[in-house]
Design a protein around this nucleic acid. Structure first.
Lengths: 149, 149
DNA sequence: GCCATATAGTTGCATATGCAACTAAGCTAA
DNA sequence: TTAGCTTAGTTGCATATGCAACTATATGGC
């Protein structure tokens, strides 16, 4: 026997989908207008930047940005073709690759942030007060799986 | 001069993207497992169902589900090819079409809801209390453009 | 060591999306 | 009326995504 959600929950869910779609479109448009790559590129470059010189394995990036491995593989192809990342063979695991951000990649990341940041500001933060931002963040976090050790 | 978002806002924004991606994947998987069509089909069918016998113009659907016209056009192609909707020429406007849901479409919608509903329940509502659901809904709504008359 | 099985990543194919150009019909105003 | 602009919807092309099958290496039991 399946439990079904109440009306309020359904509305909230629908609102989540709709608002997300709306905001994403705004932000992507801002990036495109500034002739910058899309968010998915930013995500990968950002993770690699945070990882530092050690780089990341593909499955780590995959887990981090919630993109499945086949799509990540091809996203990395594109990034590599544009010289923003480098794949190196992995000493500890012959199957895998260590992915590193290149200098060009770092520069692209630097160029993207002002636009991306101000898009977040103007489409998102500007419409909420401190408390709302915090509440939203907390609630969304509760919907994600708890990371077991 | 561009204003930039504070750290908390950026975290909340990132959480929005991530949680959305995570939940969508869960729900789509549930639908696929039950051998049902994807959410985008549901969205269209649902809007048409609500519209009743008068049907909807494509631009109305487009505005409602925030899907641009070219993609909607092809989504409708697929729905029509599967016999779930009907496009009729529009008496008031020779350029446009009136889109109607078929009986088959209504049946598909009916079959989808139990799965979709219980997916919303298990991946979404179940993890939040009443107050959180309401807060989330309200906050998300504030991020959407205010419908001017 | 050797087999079965699991994991990392890639590739082929079908489908979905974004963008720009297009057709066709309505609207406005001289 | 008709010329110029706008709107509704479709189509071609490039790109992105999902799914399943594949290669290659690693791991665990015997």
């Amino acid at each position: 026997m399946m439990k079904h959600p109440d009306q309020t929950s359904v509305k909230a869910w629908a609102q989540l989908l709709k608002t997300h779609r709306f905001l994403l479109e705004q932000v992507e448009t801002d990036l495109k207008t500034a002739q910058l790559p899309s968010l998915s590129w930013y995500d990968v470059l950002y993770e690699l930047k945070c990882a530092g010189p050690a780089g990341l394995r593909q499955y780590e990036i995959s887990a981090q940005i919630l993109l499945n491995k086949h799509n990540l593989s091809r996203l990395l192809d594109r990034l590599q073709a544009n010289g923003l990342i480098r794949r190196e063979s992995c000493p500890e695991d012959g199957r895998g690759h260590c992915v590193h951000i290149t200098d060009t990649g770092t520069q692209v990341l630097k160029k993207m942030w002002p636009i991306y940041g101000s898009a977040i500001q103007s489409h998102f933060s500007e419409h909420l007060n401190r408390e709302e931002v915090q509440q939203l963040s907390d609630i969304l976090l509760k919907l994600m799986p708890t990371r077991e050790k």
